[in-house]
Amino acid sequence: MQVPASFEYRRASSVEDALAQLERFGEEARVIAGGHSLLPMMKLRLARPGLLVDINDLHELDYVRLEGDELCVGALTRHRELLESELVGRLFPIFHDAERVIADPPVRNRGTIGGSLCQADPAEDLSAVCAAVRAVAVVLGGGGRRRVPMAEFYRGPYETDVGTGEMLVEIRVPVVPGGGSAYEKVERKTGDWAIAAAGAALAVVDGRIASPGIGLAAVGVSPVGYRRAEEALAGREPSAEVFAEAGRIAAEDCDPVTDTRGTAAYKRHLAGELTERALRRAAERAGRPVAAA
């Protein structure tokens, strides 16, 4: 039987209350929402917080809405709600692509977008998605509200920019006119972590690619930072050759390791191929289908 080590538990009654608890217990405190990343790690003693602050009652953090030209998603929004949101599917189908292959329905009933991003697992899908769509994390703490782009939010495996006494409260995604997005994942079996996965987002403005974004899961320490591949896309006319080139660069820039899910060489191959496929599908959704090379 796996049981976590002892800890104190507080159920937060408001965001302010949660922040006060986090402040008081400092580095010992962790936020718990769905718990499907944190509790397994606590069972294995890979995480051993002294205090859990349960934010499941904070319904004010559970929403999906459009504010101006940004899609706003509360940190407590469950995977299932993202998958069932018509607004999310219409503006950013990449979220639905990913959510369909994240774990399974009972896990998606509990797990949240905020928890997924804060876990910062290099193989986690929503981090790659948020990197591709250039999401901004809204972090709240005693020092006020900060907007942190994904490239800075993700600090490394299991490490984010969320500091002691702070919590992630919202994810904001800029809505780009004429945009399309897609996520491609290869997994060993239904609901598994990715062997490799790629997310891509782009817009086509006056026949040229604008705001390209790429995020990769499970092929390196970070889902973000594929700037060279993005630069190879910006300002070009969408074509099979351009997408193949971006895929080739992404494969070059990723850093997979051999493990039980596959060899580094296989994962690198997947990174390139899946980037290319995601770009093709994103272009199709942006209304600019590109014939296969």
Binding site: Y9, G35, P106, N109, R110
Partner: peptide, 19 residues
């Protein structure tokens, strides 16, 4: 270990009783 929590299936090995 699936049970219904407020009507929805959840895996009860990964839910704390206090939650």
């Amino acid at each position: 270990c699936v049970v219904l929590l407020d009507g929805e299936p959840v895996k009860s090995c990964t839910v704390l009783a206090v939650m």
